[in-house]
Amino acid sequence: MLVIKGLSKRYADKVVYENIDLTFDKGISVLLAPNGAGKTTLMNMLVTIAKPDKGQILYNDKDIYKLGDSYRKILGYLPQKVGYYKNYTAYENLMYVAALKGLREENADSIINMYLDKFGLFEVKDKKVKGFSGGMLQRVGIIGALLNEPEILVLDEPTAGLDPKERVRLKKILSDLGKERIIIVSTHITSDIEFIANKIVMIKDRKILHDDKVDTICSKYNGKIYEVFLDANEVAEFECNNYVLMQQYENNKVKIRFFMDEGADINYRSVIPNLDDVFVCEYKDCTGSEGVLE
């Protein structure tokens, strides 16, 4: 179990976290926040690249900074910008990562080949990665993070650059891996994790906004999300008076999905809130320009 206790962090004059507490158990935990909210900062602290100003991060009741190398031995990390050597083949890149993780050459070879096969890269393993697509590079990065069979897997925006097929493949693999290890994923794309996350951590204004299961978080918006069909000329006026989450054209009408805290018109159809609705509602005040920390 990975526990964050009373953690505070600031960069220069910007406070990123103020006295937060979190617990990560086996399974997939997702850090969900808009760009600039401090997801990567938290990730950096979890992988010992950055250190909190106050508070502790404990793994099995031991401070991870005191554990040092023994903590990093059971850690797998995929940074936001996937690292690779352009002139190396996929196999050579992974062999280098395997060397960093202290794997023996013969073991590394079989593990790398197994994952290359699992992630659909076996056929291109001897090709230089400079010719790879973003999705292929992302997969190479994920394999690198998995090579040491980590107990804690930290993935910063793992689905960035992946096409829908690759996203499905990754989600399936993460689901499998999450059965026996702690997986912490950061993202701002809710559809990637809605159905595989064991819990969602939403961050806002230096604090933890929600730390619960998807259903529990969504249920807080029960009776507050509605849908209505309008004529095209009515949309502008409606938008002025309501917080619109989504609009879609259907049979010459516009389907509007919106948030209304109370007193909804009986003509509006109440719908089951999803994570997208929660995300948009919770961060409606955020400009998305806080990217300095990302």
Partner: peptide
């Protein structure tokens, strides 16, 4: 220079043998 240019440094710092 290759480590930083290619974004490998974070992987190196978080690897068991890398840091050590």
């Amino acid at each position: 220079s290759k480590d930083r240019e290619n974004g490998m440094d974070y992987i190196i710092y978080t690897s068991y043998l890398g840091r050590k």
